[in-house]
Nucleic acid binder design. Structure first.
Lengths: 347, 347
DNA sequence: CTGAAAGCGCTAACAC
DNA sequence: GTGTTAGCGCTTTCAG
């Protein structure tokens, strides 16, 4: 592997001139520049990233911190979504000449967090978080060392943390309102994940606010904690119909849950949307596939904005108030909620 | 951020002793060692990766080269699969203290490949490839500079390249044979992707060999080039049934195609498996969901083996013959092929 | 067992 | 415009 020294020697200039030519950090005579670039080409020279990083104090990597791939949340309950996110991030990273370091935490909580290690060792210049809940241990440490990071699909109200997310409260409020407008009174709610996920909390509050604004008290029998499985949607239905207070509509937490609901309905000979109206979140391929009304959560846009924000943080000198960017999103009305005609679930 | 110097000063030893203690590269008195580690803890010291990389000539990163996330192949036509792969790779990388650098190529072919840049700049110590076809430009360069890399889900017969994959010829042969054994004579084939994907070629050859071994000549009217969409399965059916030679069974290239086939059949009132038997590949969640007989392609195992192989290459001093590791896989028989009873597609 | 010192490849003053 | 040179933080001989 050739070094900057080799290039300098071969081109008959000093190493600083080569460096200036490569980085544009000082004017170099066109003639000289040409000679240098020819030599670089000929020697297949590529600056050593470690050497460069050592002096610039930049790794040119940004870390993306995701849940452990073993954990089912990693799939985000629909394919394509993670690809969308990566693309959104990758586009801006690529522009800036940055690479993406993918990391998740060790299963054992004994060792220090991988994130902190990456930050402290200078392996990454900033971090993008895609975790559903709040890990204060990590956050506090990052804030303390003033390390740049942005949360995606999650936000903090009690700590100065930058984030990009949709407005889950509003989204859920609209979903419930849509069903209320269609005349439903007994509307059930399935959380997208465990209750300690911020998204679960926000969505529940949006849902219950909508009901309350319509003078309907949320019924705890019509509440179910879901997860990212089809089965949880199915089980939610079992739960609701065993509770004695059968719902006429459901706000599901994820498209995949809605599919479970559809299955339950089909088995019981219930018609969607006549007997049960369904509204969900994600607006994924599943929603299209099964003709489910669903509220979009565009991960491409979220990733894109989060990355842009992170780069601002990385290059910023002076402190600044953290921002919580809200990505506009909307309800995609399909057959499952009864306001438009319903297609076959297999179409 | 504290450096090794700070630790040395605070612990009252020289920096080399600190280095020895951290890396275990020389014996250090237990007493001294204890003092050093306490200081490290207190200062939150973490060795700078660039400085370390500069002298050790290791980045402790391995690159995973994937298709551009914009391209639909990125999704591998089923969720979870990419997560499985990452987990397989991540487990062995984590053990070795390596991080994962995710990269894909720029859409414009003008600039030099990102891969080569990563390799030459020392940003990664090895590369794992997850691309469906053969890019000789890149391969040749990597071979020339003796850079360690392994192909996943793909292999080379004409170049000395290490790879980990299932035996697609064999898999496809078995799929077709299974249908032949059930008495089918008119068996159609849908490729999993474009014909320049090696996997498409291998699968077609496996399929046609099985037919020929049963004295059946593959009918070109029963051949269709699919992709990773449900629609391509649907269109394949339109094609087959318009061709004048309706098939009684299909070897689909991907589970998602099989779903498209199911849709077509349902719309036309055809019964699966009575009117059309379907066998597919991937054995993904879709296959389970829709009760599709499918041949497994376990990405966890592929990733795991590829990573292990790559680390062997990285640490190896002397040259060695490239290996093509074949991961055992098998046909998961479900309702769609007619040899077991069929469940409802929504279960 | 521990310390002194060279040097990895590069950037960025600073001279000229 | 270009060259000289001092480090960046670490590992690793080599002495002692």
């Amino acid at each position: 592997m050739s070094t900057i020294k080799d290039v300098a020697r071969e081109a008959g200039v000093s190493i600083s001139t080569v460096s200036f030519a490569i980085n544009g950090t000082a004017p170099v005579a066109p003639e000289t520049k040409k000679r240098i670039f020819e030599t670089i080409e000929r020697l297949n020279y590529q600056p050593n990233s470690a050497a460069r990083g050592l002096v610039t104090r930049k790794s040119n990597n940004i870390g993306i911190f995701v849940p452990h791939p073993d954990s089912s949340i990693f799939t985000f309950s629909g394919n394509q979504l993670f690809a969308n996110l990566l693309q959104g991030i990758g586009e801006v990273a690529g522009e800036k000449g940055y690479n993406l370091l993918l990391a998740w935490d060790r299963p054992d909580k004994e060792k220090p967090s991988k994130v902190i290690e990456l930050a402290r060792s200078g392996s990454v210049d900033g971090l993008l978080f895609l975790i559903p809940n709040h890990d204060h241990t990590i956050i506090d440490q990052l804030i303390e060392i003033k390390f740049p990071f942005v949360f995606m699909g999650n936000h903090y109200s009690d700590k100065p943390v930058d984030s990009v997310d949709i407005d889950n409260f509003q989204a859920s409020y609209e979903c419930a309102s849509h069903l209320l407008k269609l005349g439903h009174k007994r509307i059930a709610f399935i959380s997208p994940g465990p209750l300690d996920f911020l998204v679960s909390e926000d969505r529940y509050e949006g849902y219950s606010s909508a009901l309350k604004d319509a003078y309907i008290e949320p019924d705890e029998r019509l509440f179910y904690v879901g997860d990212d499985s089809k089965a949880s949607g199915y089980r939610a239905m079992e739960h609701f119909f065993a509770s004695g207070e059968s719902p006429s509509a459901i706000v599901a937490g994820r498209d995949v849950q809605a599919v479970g609901i559809l299955k339950y309905a089909k088995e019981r000979g219930m018609d969607i949307p006549r007997d049960i109206a369904v509204v969900s979140f994600e607006n994924s391929q599943l929603a299209e596939m099964y003709d489910i009304t669903s509220y979009s959560t565009d991960l491409y846009v979220i990733g894109n904005n989060a990355a842009k924000m992170l780069f601002k943080l990385i290059s910023r000198k002076k402190e600044r108030q953290p921002q919580n960017v809200v990505i506009p999103s909307e309800l995609f009305v399909r057959g499952s909620c009864g306001s438009v005609s319903r297609n076959d679930p297999l179409s």
